[in-house]
């Protein structure tokens, strides 16, 4: 791996990787933290090439086509709740069982 760890520390820290995993709701191990730190540092370093362009006053392109609100009649469509419930992994009666909230 050709990542310069000294430089890597300036782009992103181990602390930040842990926080990102938490925000993304992905559990990662200590070993993975290290690996992600190296890989993400290298990738973010590359992304930083955008810093050299002057984007002052340029409108961002969130979408390439002109987006307008598209509405339709609020009419029920054919779907069966039963077929939807068939793919639920854990149920209690006809309810989706959720993990403990508090």
């Amino acid at each position: 791996m050709k990542v310069n760890t000294h430089m890597a520390k300036e782009v992103i820290t181990l602390e930040e990787v842990r926080r990102l995993a938490w925000l993304s709701k992905i559990k990662i191990s200590k070993r993975e933290e290290r690996r992600y730190l190296n890989e993400m540092s290298e990738i973010l370093e590359y992304f930083r090439m955008l810093d050299e362009i002057d984007t002052e006053g340029v409108e961002p392109t969130y979408h390439v086509i002109e987006l307008v609100n598209v509405t339709r009649e609020d009419a029920p469509q054919q779907t069966s709740p039963d077929s939807l419930l068939e793919i639920v992994p854990v149920m209690k009666g006809r309810y989706v069982k959720a993990p403990r909230i508090v």
């Binding site: 990102l20 992905i26 993400m40 955008l50 810093d51 984007t55 961002p60 392109t61």
Partner: peptide, 30 residues
């Protein structure tokens, strides 16, 4: 997939949004 989710979360997070996400969308315009 995990790597991209985490990097995307980073690019959209407070403090980095302007530097990465918004800048990328402006470059897209250019």
């Amino acid at each position: 997939v995990k790597r991209r989710i985490m990097l995307g979360t980073y690019a959209l997070s407070a403090g980095y949004y302007n530097q990465y996400y918004l800048r990328a969308q402006r470059v897209r315009t250019l």
